[in-house]
Every structure is written in structure tokens, then in C-alpha cells.
Nucleic acid binder design. Structure first.
Lengths: 344, 344
DNA sequence: CCGGATAATGACAACGTTGTCATTATCCGG
DNA sequence: CCGGATAATGACAACGTTGTCATTATCCGG
């Protein structure tokens, strides 16, 4: 049923160790034998058994831990990770954590996973990746990981961190609204435990400041990264004579909720109100009007984080090969669509 | 670092085989020894090594194969599967296939995966689960699986199949439109390789027939399960004096595209046109107007399919324990929202 | 063409577990 | 109390691979 290295060896007329050498691309195998083995591999459709390798200590399994309820975000990340795993012949174990869990609980869950499944390393995404308590405990426990975070500058552990410059992208989006002559621009924030909330808010503030626009305290409205939270804030913020002319929603979900609220109140978007989001989710493309937003290449970012982890894992066996970390920063790209227009 | 069975054996003063017996709850171990071993296990915090077990053929790993680009669908399924895996202490390997691949290519990929990762069984979702060629080849190859399909009645292999009665749900949705006095109801179909397309179409046709409404041939428009396909069909279908008063979109993505097209043409939904979808995706709740649709409890369905697989895998070792298969059918539930109103 | 060096190949143990069979301990009837 | 039956325990092989070391083939300088 299952083709093993020994059957390949027999067909090729060599010892199974030689087959192992060919499979692992070790050198010191004569061209003739190598070719014979490769043919046998092809003919029998041989696939190395990952389990046996794992038992020998060659764990090629990484874990993807997340506690983010945004399914579009997660699946895009997942696909980027899986693609890189496949290229490198790594296996992936997926583990969603409850977003309501405490840092301690989440940490324990992660440790249990790594032990049970002999996971060699982890890819961490926000907000877990930005939780200092969890990160430092993992570090102390000697668990390898790379992480994706929101940061406008390289973090201290940049060699294992991909950082996304939400701040600058948010600055650009805010400036786009300001250039359209908006002045009363409200900011609907995301979950406080996501670093991106703070970064995007900072970008918004900086753009307002640089353009000498005072920020009334009631313009900044805190909440969560959800449709419901956007809708609620939209209802209260927009149901007022002194309502803003534009709303910068911290992500597309919030923007969707805000848009919904505007419609409930009979406010036309974008004629009477501009709304911008962040994420380039499918909704932002499919809604009416389509949303001005910032595009994060999440699959690419996740793939990069995965590759980084794999490099890190293999360089720990043969050191000196560590990555330069020059290019771990990403800048989300503003995409102007139909939901933002100059105020009338 | 990692505690093995031998260390437990040494501490307990028994052979490692006895520890194995205790761990696996085999009988024929004296109470006294058993207790000593259990104490040693506790003291050392011993965890059986999944990899070694897997190598011995005790695979507790199942595979989730899909080639469906709908991320909301996939992640909901994934969560249902993962939850059941965790309850049963199974591991999950996730494998997305290219939706453009041929049946042969997909089959080869699946076989490669099962060999590489020593997967004990698979959970298959549409359209792979409905591809007769793939299914029968897997069967022939002795690969265990359960599948989720669209079918209005129990399929032949019901003992390993969860079936969703899309037909009946589509009948109900169509009837809802008919009860609202719609007569010119157009049907925007999904991908032909998804059985659900045909089933939902059949439900639509049956409802029309039972209400003595003739189906003009141009009312049924084929296409794909995508936003773009919905938008294109919307543009051509709606840009006509004799346009329908309602459109039954085969899923929410198509409905979203159709809604977009209607807006481009200045047609008000639901006042001038009713649009209904299928799936209860987040979009259907968040769009304006929100979409009348049919809710499929995909996480529950996926969890059920997973449990079924696990039962199947364990009953194959001790037979006679097979499941009765009485309750493998699901009926999507119609949810009436704002996008459907009687025509003016 | 010989012999030492090096390159190529192979034999075997090991990873941590479970299955098979052998060995030892215990039981029980006469 | 003996001996055969059965229960309890253990020794060892095996899963499919990689690492270590030994063996064999090839090369190359004199």
C-alpha cells in the first residue's frame, strides 16, 4: 500500500541509505546511482513518511495559533502559511484559541499543543503576537516562534518579527480625507488589545496635527473591531446636528457597521458622509458604495513569517546562516474607492 | 526534556511494556502495579508521544481537504472540525487544493497527503465530496473518509455521508417569493460541479411548477458562485424592460453581486426588485438591505462529519459498533430579512 | 602498477511507541 | 502439596526514517 524507502531501494538496486541520501539531496552519491534512484522514486511515487522523520527529531511541523474572530483575516493568513509550508515540505497544525481567554490560559494551551504535537515552531498573529506576557513566557520556555505585529518601526526582536506600518498607512488615509477638504473627521477605534488600533489612531492624530486640524475629544470613539460596534457607534455619532463629514473606521468591519448605521439614519454615503475602512476585505469591494481602505497583503505577510520561522528553525542547527532582517516591514497600500468624496 | 515511557517504567520499577498497558487502559495489569505506574506518570507529567504512535499505525490524525474558495464557508467548517478533533484528541491536517485542478490531479494530491502525513481519514466537502470519480478512487484505494454533500435524500453511502437538503430549502425560499406575489422569478445558478446548484435549482423549479408558474427559459441563468458572476448576470438580466421582479441567487456571493448590479442600474432593492441568497454569510447580515437567505449550520455539520469519521475509524478496529446513520440529514433554515418584498 | 588517500556505499542502531510471543507468577482442583 | 491451567509481566521486533560508523570502490602520485 504505502511505498517505503526500502521498496525504492530494492527497485533501484541500492541500499535504502542511498535512497535516503538522494531524497535529502545529500552529496556524495554518484550521478548514475542518483538517477537510478530518482527514477525508482518517480515510478513508485515514493513520498517520505513525515511521521518517521518526526520521530527521528526532524520535526517539520509548525503551529498556527490565533484568537482572531475575523474569518477573512484568518483564512488569508492560513493560506499564506500553508503555501509556504508546502514549498518547504512542512506540516501545519492549526489551533484557534478562545479570544476571551486570559494570557495565562492561552499560554498553557500553546504549551500543551507544542508538546502533544511535537511542533517545532509557531507563527503568531495579533493579538497574541502583541501580548508581551505570552511572548516573554514563550521565549523563556524556549519555544521558537515568529510573529506578525503592528508597528511603525522595527521592534527589538526584528529578526523574528514581521511588522506592519499601520501608522503610516493610517496617516495617508487621513491625509486623503483632509485633501478632500474634510475637517471634522471622526475615528472609530478597534480593540485596545490589538496594537494596530493604537498605531492607526496615532497615524490619524499625526495627520490631523500636521495639517493643523484640532481634534475634538468626541471625534475619537473607542470600541471593537466588529460590525456591531461600528453600527452602534455610527448610530450615536451620526444622530446629531454636529456630526462629522467623514469617519475613519479602524477596519472594514467597523466601516460596514457604520455604513449600515448611516443608511438607517437616511444619510447618503458618500454624498453626505465619507467612510473609509482598513483591510481590503471582500466586503470593502462588494459593498455599495465600495469602501476606500488600506490593503494589507496578509497572505504574503503570513508566508513571509512562515519562511522566517523555517529559516530560523534550520539555522539553529547550522548557525551563521541567520537572516539579515532588512526587509521585515510592510506598508499597507491605500486604495481609494467610492466611499470617500469631498464634503458638500 | 521530553519524558518517555522508559523513564516512567524505571521510576515505577516495571518494564516499559507495562507502562504502555496502563497508558492504553489495557486490562491484565495488577492493581498495585497499575497504581505505581499511574503515580510515576503523574510525577513525571508523562505525555504519550503522538508521533511514535502514529508510526506504529495508530494514527490519530485526520485531514481536511477542500477546494472551495469561499473563505467564510471554509473557516466555519474548519472550526467545527477542529472542535470535534480536540474533543477526541485527534490532530488535524489542513489541505486546500487548487479549485482549477482536474479530478486526477486532486486525487493524486489527496493520496500524497495521506501517505506523507499518515492521515487516518478525511473529511471531504463540496465539490470534492460530490465528485464521483474522486470518491470512487479513494474508496478503491482503501482511504477512509466521510463527506458532506448536497442531496435531498439519503445517498447510498449514508453511513459515511452528511447530506444537506438544499432542494427543500430552495423550495421554501421560492415559495416565500411566490407568496409575496412574485411571478417573474429569475434563478442565478452556481457552479455546475457543486451539486448544491442543481439541488437548489430543482427546488426552485418544483416550487414554480407546484404553483403553476411557467418558467421562461431565460429566467434560469447559469454562472459561478462568485460576486463577479452575480454582478455580470445582474447587469444583463436587469437591463431590460421585461426584467424579473425577484432574483433567487444560488448563494450570498452571487446575491451580493446582483445587488451591486441593481444599484449600478439605479434599481432599488427591495422596492423595485427582490433579491434572495443562500448561506447566511456575514455579508447577508451586513449588507443594505440585509439579505433573505437560508442558514446552514456549517460548523455543526462539519463537526458531525468529523465525529462520524472518528467513529468509523475506531469501529473498524472493533466492528459491530457502526453507527445507525439515522440522523445524517440537515435542512437549511430560511431567514427572511429585508431584501425581499412583494412587487409593486 | 602499487598503496595510501579519499570518495561512495552500506550495515546497523536509534527515535518512542505497540504487537507478538515467551517467560514467570499465581491459582486451583485433586 | 503437586501439576496443569491461566493470569501477569517482560523481551524483543517492528513502524520508516536519519545518523554513525564501517566497508568497499575509486583515484592518483610516485
Amino acid at each position: 500500500m504505502k511505498v517505503t524507502i526500502k521498496e525504492v531501494a530494492e527497485l533501484a538496486g541500492v541500499s535504502f541509505k542511498t535512497v535516503s541520501r538522494v531524497v535529502n539531496e545529500e552529496d556524495g552519491v554518484k550521478t548514475e546511482l542518483r538517477e537510478r534512484v530518482q527514477q525508482a522514486i518517480k515510478k513508485l511515487n515514493y513520498q517520505p513518511n513525515i511521521t518517521a522523520r518526526r520521530l527521528r527529531g526532524k520535526s517539520a511541523t509548525i503551529g498556527f495559533i490565533y484568537n482572531n474572530p475575523n474569518s477573512n483575516y484568518v483564512i488569508t493568513m492560513l493560506h499564506g502559511i500553508l503555501a509556504t509550508c508546502r514549498e518547504n515540505r512542512y506540516e501545519l497544525v492549526v489551533h484557534p484559541c478562545d479570544s476571551k481567554s486570559s494570557a495565562d490560559e492561552t499560554y498553557d494551551e500553546i504549551v500543551a499543543l507544542t508538546q502533544r504535537s511535537s511542533v517545532a515552531g509557531l507563527v503568531l498573529t495579533p493579538p497574541i503576537s502583541e501580548n508581551f506576557e505570552i511572548i516573554s513566557k514563550l521565549e523563556k520556555a524556549g519555544i521558537k516562534f515568529t510573529r506578525i505585529v503592528s508597528s511603525s518601526e522595527p521592534p527589538k526582536d526584528v529578526e523574528r518579527t514581521i511588522y506592519i506600518d499601520d501608522r503610516r498607512a493610517a496617516y495617508q488615509i487621513t491625509e486623503h480625507l483632509i485633501n478632500q477638504k474634510h475637517r471634522a473627521i471622526s475615528f472609530f477605534n478597534g480593540d485596545p488589545e490589538h496594537h494596530s488600533s493604537e498605531e492607526r489612531l496615532d497615524g490619524y492624530k499625526a495627520a490631523m496635527r500636521d495639517n493643523n486640524i484640532p481634534i475634538e475629544s468626541n471625534l475619537i470613539v473607542s470600541g471593537e473591531y466588529t460590525f456591531e460596534s461600528g453600527m452602534q457607534r455610527g448610530k450615536t455619532t451620526l444622530d446629531s446636528d454636529s456630526r462629522p463629514t467623514a469617519i475613519f473606521a479602524c477596519n472594514d468591519e467597523i466601516a460596514a457597521g457604520t455604513l449600515f448605521a448611516a443608511r438607517m439614519l437616511g444619510i447618503n454615503v458618500p454624498e453626505q458622509l465619507s467612510i473609509v475602512g482598513f483591510e481590503d476585505s471582500p466586503f470593502s469591494r462588494q459593498s455599495w458604495p465600495s469602501l476606500t481602505t488600506a490593503k494589507q497583503p496578509n497572505d504574503e505577510i503570513a508566508g513571509h513569517a512562515t519562511q522566517l520561522l523555517i529559516d530560523l528553525l534550520s539555522s539553529s542547527s547550522k548557525p551563521g546562516d541567520a537572516e539579515k532582517a532588512h526587509n521585515h516591514g510592510y506598508l499597507p497600500e491605500m486604495i481609494v474607492r467610492e466611499s470617500s468624496l469631498p464634503p458638500r
